[in-house]
Design a protein around this nucleic acid. Structure first.
Lengths: 324, 324
DNA sequence: TCAAAAGTGTTATCCTTACACCCATGT
DNA sequence: ACATGGGTGTAAGGATAACACTTTTGA
């Protein structure tokens, strides 16, 4: 009987220079010592003897691999599909069935004690169609849509594509990151799809070396899928829990907060309404001090009233969209 | 090295006679043939050779154990804490570390092809404090609060108890089912807590036989925790996805729908406002036919416009509360 | 005729949206 | 003085919450 190995993967998200970034690693082959062709997420096997809970195990291996301490951590999803468990499966687990338990972690950009071979990579590299801050990305219509329409031979496929990629005037829903990635995977447009098909036939496929950047940079194993799950979950959660503050330094201006939220959600927000709704929630508190730096008028510094989280179920931020 | 076994558990919820019920089983001991002292959820080991995905595995073992076909299914959470994996662990897995992947499934009461040893059990038996339809349950203040306050020796514990059990005028939040159960478990008031402590010391503890009904009927293994996760998730999801209709027959009256939602959410709703918000969403369509049966004036029959789900991200139902 | 359940109107209030405008600083 | 970013005011429209009331059936 095939044995089971549990792999823990962490989607660690921060915002740097107005871009959402994720911590990625390029693992070295245990035998040849060569760096992997593709990036992966920080990943570690779960040790049933050593680890009391998954969350502790995630914190431990992230600390080892990337040399910093996680703050906010939550479980994402457990992936068990046969045929999606790829190369890392082999490292130390000959022929075992690998189950990935994905975790989402957030960190303010301050925490930048990094280990070698770990990189903050802009998430837009993996999902270039997800950034609508400067309007609809041209690559959707220019590169993605033609092959998608060729693939969409049934009414049902066409409806899905229209809905997810906001074709024919249907609105963009920024939360459906995973569904969009899955659609591209099913349509064979994600480079990982071809690799997984080869492996399913028993051929030890190579990691895709060349790929069209518009379809996003592929990742090891099923990590791009886990990253998509994490980004989608975060975008949704922004709206009903005060998680955005986990990405901020202890003191920040409202514009910095807005820019952080915009980077994660991938949409531009309406400044005044963003601020007004913030006010009503009482989530932040002005410090009376100013922050000069950006050129214009200095902004007031604010802090997150973290005590609210303890005191009850704190709400999230409104995302009043600017334009379409 | 300890091997890993993945157990799949299903929280299968229906509404019957105005009560939310869950499908439970009383497994027989493989050796003695005796029925277990406590109820458990439908549970099956995941076979890494046979099953392509978790969801297919869940559907398969539920079909075998309970003889019916699931409709709506979604993954809940993966539990891996050491010390919470209890008796079923031993069945066919000597000393292995058991990881439970929990699934939520919904079914209209129609689907009642049952196998022997499976029972629809009112969820209120396991969580008697969760039903606020007829006002605040008396047992909260009479039975739960005194030992909770003795346990709440720190400011932080006291705040949690106040928040979760709506003490001192703080509002009841029906979604926090898991957190309430976890609080009772931590406070040692859930019978499972004592059992798990004994096992952690290496003593093969008996399942709790006698228990105070106000603390809820205990379940095998970590199943009550998984059930709490499922109920909480369902209560939340009701509000933003049209899942309530998965619990309804194809045709229903608005009062039946309201009573179903009330049974799951555990709160009484304001009739007129419930209907008005339903109207605005266009989730249901009147059939023009009437349904006589209940004594009073016959009600119009409605159907769920299932085509909306395909066409886009359909919303949930508003839960306009009646009284406090 | 009365109880029980279905169904209709109406208003005050709050929140969201979409405007337009003023303020403080560095160059 | 002007560009840049920070910050404020207000009015229209829609959604919610809280009222009270009418209608249709069975016993």
């Amino acid at each position: 009987m095939t044995s089971i190995v549990i792999g823990l993967s962490a989607v660690i998200i921060a915002v740097r220079d107005g871009e959402a970034v994720a911590l990625t690693v390029r693992p070295h082959d245990a035998v040849t010592g060569e760096a992997a062709a593709l990036a992966g997420l920080p990943f570690g096997p779960f040790d049933p003897d050593g680890h009391r809970t998954f969350e502790l195990a995630v914190r431990a291996f992230v600390r080892e691999q990337t040399r910093f301490e996680l703050g906010f951590v939550e479980q994402l999803y457990t992936f068990g599909d046969k045929g999606r468990d790829a190369p890392l499966a082999d490292v130390g687990a000959g022929g075992a069935r690998v189950i990935s338990v994905g975790y989402l972690a957030l960190t303010p950009q301050a925490a930048t004690t990094q280990a070698p071979d770990t990189f903050w990579t802009p998430i837009a590299r993996f999902f270039p169609w997800e950034d609508w801050r400067r309007g609809r990305p041209a690559l959707i219509d220019e590169v993605l849509v033609p092959p998608l329409l060729r693939w969409a031979t049934s009414e049902e496929r066409l409806a899905r594509a229209r809905l997810l990629f906001a074709l024919d005037g249907s609105p963009w829903n920024e939360e459906r990151v995973l569904e969009r990635y899955e659609l591209l995977y099913e349509a064979g447009l994600a480079p990982e799809a071809a690799r997984d098909r080869e492996r399913a036939r028993g051929r030890p496929a190579e990691e895709p070396a060349a790929y069209a950047p518009a379809f996003g940079e592929p990742m090891l194993s099923d990590h791009r899928r886990i990253l998509a799950t994490g980004l989608g979950r975060l975008r949704g959660k922004l709206k009903y829990r005060p998680v955005a503050f986990e990405l901020m330094a202890p003191e920040f201006t409202l514009s910095q907060l807005q820019r952080t939220v915009e980077a994660v959600a991938g949409v531009a927000l309406h400044k005044q309404n963003f601020r007004r709704t913030l006010e009503r929630t009482d989530l932040v508190e002005g410090l009376g001090r100013l922050h000069a730096e950006t050129g214009g008028r200095p902004a007031e510094l604010f802090r997150f009233r973290r005590e609210l989280v303890r005191a009850g179920p704190a709400p999230g931020l409104a995302l009043p969209r600017l334009r379409d």
